[in-house]
């Protein structure tokens, strides 16, 4: 119990009448890196969005650091202050410079002064190699730079758990590389990460555990190398083969 940062049990969710998640049980330990794999439409992204209640689950329980997630606004703010979220389409705020994007959550959430917040923001940007771009606006950057800035923004609040929803899928192959490099760098910081991605190399090198989801259920999970090299289930194996042949 003590080592568990995130515990999900019996999670069901969907849109309208369509059930997307049909009973997910999953836990993530402090500092653990977990990669979620699965075909499109399998519910990976919905699962990730349910954790900070960006999508409201139908039933089931989500606990972060022992705190049960519920729709109460104060609880949600506490939960969201301890989880960072990186979107597939970056979703930076286009009317603010990069540094304002990163500093704003600190000012609003932690009550920091603008100066303090921007100092921290600048240091995060520097670490990720984006220091030079601090005064640029998001739409002036390449997709890869935008996604790295979005990762910086998610890291600003110093979350215990970083959720990444296909952070490289919207990018050209040549731009993916720089984002994957950033992911490796973040993975080294000791923070727990739950990542939906098709980057198998990253999964193999950086993940502790791989979870394979299909049709709203966990099909297989286990040690990253084990699952990627010797999947036990046929569906996992088929999926991996298709993914590798595409690369």
């Amino acid at each position: 119990m003590s080592g568990e940062l995130l515990q999900i049990s019996g999670l069901r969710a969907g849109y309208g009448r369509i059930e997307v998640l049909r009973g997910i049980n999953l836990s993530v330990k402090k500092g653990e890196k977990v990669v979620i794999l699965g075909p499109s439409g399998s519910g990976k992204s919905t699962l990730l969005k349910c954790i900070p209640y960006l999508v409201r689950p139908w039933s089931g329980e989500i606990r972060i650091n022992g705190l049960v997630v519920n729709p109460d606004p104060a609880t949600l703010r506490r939960i969201r202050a301890s989880t960072g979220f990186v979107f597939q389409q970056y979703n930076l705020f286009p009317h603010m410079t990069v540094i304002r994007n990163v500093a704003l959550p600190l000012e609003l959430g932690k009550g920091m002064s603008r100066r303090e917040a921007e100092k921290i923001a600048q240091s995060i940007l520097d670490v990720l190699g984006l220091g030079e771009l601090a005064e640029k606006f998001p739409l002036e950057l390449s997709g890869g730079q935008q996604q790295r800035a979005a990762i910086a923004r998610a890291l600003a609040i110093d979350p215990k758990l970083l959720l990444l929803d296909e952070p490289t899928s919207a990018l050209d192959p040549e731009l993916r590389y720089e984002v994957v490099e950033t992911l490796y760098q973040v993975a080294k910081q000791g923070r727990a990460m739950l990542i939906v991605t098709h980057e198998l190399d990253f999964a193999e090198a950086a993940a502790d555990r791989v979870v394979f989801i299909d049709e709203g259920l966990i099909v297989e999970e286990g040690d990253a190398k084990e699952v990627l090299e010797r999947p036990k289930k046929e569906r996992t194996e088929k999926f991996l083969r298709r993914l590798r042949s595409r690369l």
Binding site: P73, T83, G84, F87, N91, F93, L104, L108, G109, I157
Partner: peptide, 16 residues
Amino acid sequence: EEQYLAAESLGMTTVQ
């Protein structure tokens, strides 16, 4: 919609 989601994910209140 994504702008709302991003703001929510950062813990902003509706007013913010």
